[in-house]
Design a protein around this nucleic acid. Structure first.
Lengths: 212, 212
DNA sequence: AAATTTTTTGACCGATTGGAAAAATTCTAG
DNA sequence: CTAGAATTTTTCCAATCGGTCAAAAAATTT
């Protein structure tokens, strides 16, 4: 019948604004230092309020962290969900890569929060990796496999293909500091995402196009 | 003239063993929870000693963390250093990918420690990213570019090529939990690294081979 | 304006944190 | 064995941690 959190939720506009401000600040902090490395005081200060005041809106540290994780997993997988089995294989993969890369560009903190959670063994995702995530990937891997069977793209392991798309795109958010350091002042600006898009297009499309 | 740490270092064998045990335990802990999320007590317990005893060998938390970081950056870049400008381009890149993947398989904690450091902005690497790392990548990017100029491999951005090799290989260490969850019981065993190697070979070699 | 509800604050709590100091122990050399 | 050095443990500390509580202050309703 639902928890007390959704029965007791008239949520005035002020409440929702404050909660959003807290989650916003928490995203900043958690994405850098992980759950254990972040403190409530830190988040409270970033949100411009006192710790007891923050705890008035979220009753514990985990209560701030959990909704962030929940929101992110859903957002994160949206591009994969949109991979259309009836579309043109190569353009479908291309736009999947692009969408994923745009997410790294536009939501780097979310990517880092996700990475932080993975690094410590994803306790915040308890079973969801083995159920929801696996189910979605299984489904899309089957789509990709059917494209291979039709000879539309070159044969390879669809799971590792998906992993490599995740890895290459998320890298630009998670290892942003390294990327910018290596590219230097001129090439490390905002244009790096366009360079990356161009490169990844080439790598994957050239790598997947059948030699017919 | 060096710091006091290298002037005062007779370092009996027992001392070195204990220090190594501490660093080993610290690697376990830091790689999961990051610097701020890890505690000295946690490390001490993992090393099988009391906190004050640990602090007898390393005088602060940072003093345990710093040598781990220093060691890892060097180890991590070794495969790239070995990329031979005078070797055969495609096999060179292939064995670079393989070496990198083997490191993810054999040293996943080191990979995660590195990732953790990147996520929080790499304060432990202060300037080294912009100097040593950039210098090495610049150098090797030039090698790759020369291969492209010779028509040995297809033209693309060598920096993003290197990034994509880093990303795809390290993914198997940093996101290990996710990878295993998605691959499931049967396909998620040790064999996943061979599958990954096979896939990455195909992706990069097929993607880089010039169409002559 | 009075009454009531919501929000914010300040003081505080026990537990944990990184670390210091010194006593107690163990090891080693003569 | 014994003096001295190296190691370990016990005790302790101030700061910070996550979190509570009651009272003050604002906002809202009547």
């Amino acid at each position: 019948m639902g928890t007390d959190t959704d029965t007791a939720k008239p949520a005035t506009r002020i409440q929702r604004e404050k909660q959003e401000a807290i989650l916003e600040a928490a995203l900043d902090v958690f994405s850098q230092y992980g759950f254990r490395g972040s403190t409530i005081d830190q988040i409270a200060e970033a949100a411009g309020m006192s710790k007891p005041n923050l705890l008035y809106y979220f009753k514990s540290k985990e209560d701030i962290h959990a909704p962030l994780l929940a929101r992110i997993l859903d957002t994160w997988l949206q591009p994969l969900r949109e991979l259309d089995a009836h579309g043109d294989p190569l353009p479908e993969i291309q736009s999947y890569i692009r969408r994923k890369l745009e997410m790294s560009r536009d939501f780097p903190r979310e990517s880092r929060l996700f990475a932080n959670e993975m690094l410590r063994g994803a306790p915040g995702f308890h079973g969801v990796l083995h159920t929801d995530l696996k189910k979605l990937v299984d489904e899309k891997a089957e789509v990709i496999r059917s494209w291979m069977a039709q000879g539309k793209i070159v044969k390879c392991d669809p799971y590792h293909l998906i992993f490599s798309i995740w890895a290459t795109t998320q890298h630009y958010a998670d290892f942003d500091i390294q990327v910018r350091a290596v590219l230097g002042k001129e090439r490390g600006g905002e244009g790096r995402f366009e360079d990356a898009a161009r490169f990844l297009d080439q790598l994957f499309l050239h790598g997947l196009k059948p030699k017919n």
